[in-house]
Design a protein around this nucleic acid. Structure first.
Lengths: 241, 241
DNA sequence: GCAGCTTACAGTCATTGTGACCAGAACCCA
DNA sequence: TGGGTTCTGGTCACAATGACTGTAAGCTGC
């Protein structure tokens, strides 16, 4: 039987793509201002205590929704932080998740006095060890985008290869050759052409693609896909067959 | 402030290489018999409740040492399991680590009525959700051995390339071409020849190698290397310059 | 002490994946 | 109608890798 246990919290690092001051898509993360001690007024990850009767993922999805109003398209456990000194006063163990939301969804998000978006690689000093946590989540995102299909989680139902490339470029912070990018994505089999094209651009209209939904976004092996349902995705209509 | 919290446990999946009935090296894991309810008499992962004043890794290292007598060369957090129904009666959240131990160390391990080694891919029905946990750890080991240097954690200070290849073959469950394996390992720069060879074999004596200890076994990104000191490694002496 | 066996190690060849680059296609706009 | 830009398909060179061949170096049996 356990003694007086450590307090169990669930937090989530949220990423979305938003244009920076130069108009280029970059990674942003929403943070919430702490409204009570300890660390009052510092910015922190959305989260909360784990209720006895709630699943870990559900608690992550719920708390991030309650504070930011966002519904993520991807949600995965990141790491559990439990160092002795990470919270002043009492022992807190935080199971941290990370989430990706679509840009359209990010625009709808509640922002205000106590919720604000920050550029993910230029954060202020956050509460507790949250800077370290965001850095780790960022590292995981950047390594994982190269060997999995999570980039799709930033996009809507259909998308152009230029949009998908823009996601990769924003995450990896380097430009990719359009022709080579097209070749690798098409040969990966993760993506299927819808047959439609996106008109309205001032140039040659690009084809619209859809990702093959029979494959999960990220292979978790024997654990299988995470069970919280993805947010509903608005449909974009193409122009011409 | 948290309500009556879930109980926090720490468990560890341990892997070592041991010969199977055909004499070939395969993956084994030590399990402990539960001596109290719930799930009394079922085999389970070594672990215990998290003390308020102990780090997560330390608790993992301590509990696995107390029950099995082993000192791992590699110890990393695997995943945190917290499903509502995973333990009958009360809500238990388990932070699970996985560990690799050397074969020599594994031989020294305490075995008895309540501790026994099992072939990792042919386990009996374990307590709680521990079968699923071992499966996931196995999957992580098998994917990680291909892009990191963790295979070295199964071996001693010096080793031949045939021994290192045997580790890879046992983990991946397929045979590897000796010449190609040599080429990739040598060009990776992870390993340096000691200049000594291992005599005593009935054939041409192989060179002994040592891994470049300036590189960590596995890249954890911003988190840096896990801080529990690796067990001391017995020295093997070569024969001829 | 030598033939023969087994493993260690070195090297070749073909295939594949990928970065760099080129060129035509398709649209909008002036 | 022509210029500009992006989309898209293609080539070329190089690196990584699997399959395979051949030689080196020890031991053992006769």
């Amino acid at each position: 039987m356990p003694g007086a246990g450590a307090a169990l919290a669930v937090s989530t690092v949220i990423f979305a793509l938003r244009p920076d001051e130069d108009g280029r898509a970059t990674l942003w993360t929403p943070l919430v201002r702490r409204i009570r001690e300890p660390q009052q007024d510092l910015w922190a990850l959305p989260g909360g205590w784990l209720p006895l009767d709630e699943e870990l993922v559900s608690a992550a999805a719920r708390t991030l929704g309650e504070t930011t109003g966002l519904a993520p398209t991807y949600l995965e456990q990141l790491y559990t932080f439990g160092e002795l000194g990470r919270s002043p006063g009492r022992r807190v163990v935080s199971v941290v998740y990370w989430a990706l939301v679509q840009s359209a969804e990010a625009e709808r998000a509640a922002v205000g006095e106590n919720v604000r978006w920050f550029a993910a690689d230029a954060l202020p000093a956050l509460a507790f060890d949250h800077n370290r946590i965001v850095d780790y989540a960022l590292w995981r995102l950047r390594t994982k985008v190269e060997y999995s299909r999570i980039a799709h989680a930033f996009l809507g139902d259909t998308f152009t290869l230029a949009e998908l490339r823009e996601v990769h470029e924003a995450v990896l912070q380097r430009s990719l050759d359009p022709a080579n990018f097209r070749r690798t994505i098409e040969s990966s089999g993760n993506v299927v052409a819808t047959g439609e094209v996106l008109s309205g651009s001032p140039h040659r209209p690009p084809r619209l693609y859809r990702y093959d939904s029979s494959i999960d976004l990220a292979d978790r092996g024997p654990l299988g896909p995470e069970s919280v349902a993805a947010a509903s995705v608005p449909t974009r209509t193409g122009a011409r067959p």
